[in-house]
Design a protein around this nucleic acid. Structure first.
Length: 477
RNA sequence: UCCCCCUUAGCUCAGUUGGUUAGAGCGGCUGACUGUUAAUCAGUAGGUCCUUGGUUCGAGCCCAAGAGGGGGAGCCA
């Protein structure tokens, strides 16, 4: 018999239909009721066996985690928790799970424990929900841009350019590390390496995607990104996925408009298409919240928070305005900030961003027009000469979820900045060419995909929203 | 990289001022149970108290170093 997915059985297969379902046992109760899940939905189906007609040794093997195949009839449930169930005619064990050794039990596990068994944690409700939401968001990213006529561009994972300045890089080499070729002066001779030059894993596809932007107008990359920073926080990964749109003929305002529309689209897509999973995650977060002291509890539940993003305008304010608000704020005057704001020019710390987003405005905030000194070389200098057309989108609980800018399209201005920041010009010859030949005003931004998933799922640690997290000192699996 | 916290049964956690044989709930196992919803009931097994060294008559508890995990900061997405 052809297999039917559990989501389809629950979603309205006619009563009386004979079906085959395959999946994993979550629990086996009262010697009769098998709760089965196949990942097609967060909901289990109940398969009911008449234990008098089945071999006792077979029923003994219906342990949590075992994989089974069931033939039976879809019937209306006599019990209360579900509308339909399967009356089992035939039962086959596809894969046993030794109950004494299988680590997952029908009970709550800590996220820390589940991280140690990342190969099995997807079998829990929480992680299967996260995986499904993650997939929905991947699809929604491509749909959003496709509907707007953007072209998806694959930028290289291995890069020969280390001028991006986005962080420490992982080196790519096929040298025998015990016998690295040296030049006469004792330095490493990269001419003998695989690519004949120093190469690294990409920290951003932005510079490469700009090349496509200068021909296709509206483009984006969505790929893995690597940072060898020794960051030990719940918001950083050494390997993460980033979405970087790049638009010709867009200024910073257009850029901010797109960023806001994009985030709202994604959150709304999740609300519409991941209802069951988000309801489960909402309930989970609420239960977890109950363990916390009153002060640390979230003001809004997950679903409320997501709806709030969709329904409300993001606040937009300049860096200069932000400094004024912060300077006159209570925590600054009472010296509660670890870093006090005393004037224009300092970079904002996460305590300041959190104050603006979570206390002052209680909304997502887009900060823009930052001081030149604290922003990257490729960002466009404003006409005032001292600020840069850069923007950050700040989300409650997450901090910076998007960073972007209008790019410097003027050859001479860009060259001057490259030189001033001491970036080797020869590394960027091709990037400079974009300004030499048919340069155009353009803008773009980067969205950290896992930070989006963190927000949409309401999870607290970025290690729980990617299947196999890569962090300092940890590359298990 | 810096600061703080944690590590006791498969999991989640108690463990008094340093005192004799180490505790619970869940899970496992054995049995009961034909409408259960993380089923329930009865019984039962299960320990390198993270590691190493030290203090002490005596260490799960005190001290030192190390390992692993978590929270926060910085860097950023």
């Amino acid at each position: 018999m052809k297999r039917t997915k559990i989501i389809d059985v629950l979603g309205g297969t006619d009563i009386g239909t004979k079906v085959n379902i395959k999946g994993w046992v979550r629990t086996f109760r009262n010697n009769q009721f098998i709760a089965m899940n196949d990942g097609s939905t967060i909901n289990n189906i109940q398969a009911v066996v008449d234990f008098s007609t089945f071999d006792e040794s077979l029923l003994k093997r219906l342990t949590t985690g075992a994989c089974i195949s069931v033939d039976g009839e879809v019937v209306e449930s006599l019990g209360k928790g579900q509308s339909v169930e399967i009356k089992v005619d035939a039962l086959q064990i596809l894969g046993d799970a030794d109950a004494e050794k299988y680590p997952l039990q029908p009970k709550r596990h800590s996220l820390e424990f589940l991280r140690e068994i990342a190969h099995l944690r997807v079998r829990t409700n929480t992680f299967s929900a996260i995986y499904r939401v993650r997939h929905a968001m991947i699809f929604a990213v491509h749909k959003f841009f496709t509907d707007k006529g953007f072209c998806n561009v694959h930028t290289p994972v291995i890069t020969g350019s280390d001028a991006e300045g986005a962080g420490e890089m992982f080196r790519v080499t096929n040298f025998d590390l015990n016998n690295v070729p040296k030049s006469e002066d004792g330095s490493i001779n990269f001419k003998e390496d695989f690519f004949g030059k120093e190469t690294n894993l990409t920290v951003s596809g932005q510079l490469e995607v700009e090349t496509a932007c200068m021909a296709l107008s509206e483009v984006y990359t969505f790929g893995p990104t690597f940072r060898a920073e020794n960051s030990n926080t719940s918001r950083h990964l050494a390997e993460f996925w980033m979405i970087e749109p790049e638009m010709a003929f867009h200024d910073l305002n257009d850029n901010m408009d797109l960023a806001e529309e994009f985030l709202k689209y994604l959150v709304n897509y999740a609300l519409v298409h991941c209802k069951d999973d988000l309801e489960f995650l909402d309930k989970r977060a609420k239960e977890e919240d109950k363990q916390k002291p009153q002060l640390e509890r979230a003001e809004m539940g997950l679903l409320e928070r997501l709806q709030f993003i969709v329904d409300n305008e993001f606040v937009r304010l300049t860096y200069t305005e932000a400094i004024e608000i912060l300077r006159n704020s209570k925590p600054n005057k009472k010296k509660k900030f670890q870093y006090l704001i005393d004037g224009w020019g300092a970079d904002l710390q996460s305590e300041h961003e959190r104050f603006l987003v979570e206390k002052h405005f209680k909304k997502p905030v887009i900060l823009f027009d930052y001081p030149n000194e604290i922003k990257a070389f490729y960002m466009r200098v404003n006409d005032d000469g001292k600020t840069t057309a850069a923007m950050d989108v700040l989300f409650p609980g997450i901090g910076e979820i998007i960073g972007g800018s209008q790019r410097e399209e003027r050859y001479n201005v860009l060259l001057e900045k490259v030189n001033k920041m001491g970036i080797p010009e020869e590394e960027l010859w091709w990037y400079m060419d974009l300004r030499k030949f048919g340069s155009a005003p353009h803008s773009g931004f980067g969205l950290g995909f896992e930070r989006l998933i963190l927000f949409v799922t309401g999870m607290g640690n970025i290690r729980d929203v990617i299947p196999f997290p890569r962090t300092p000192d940890n590359a298990e699996f």
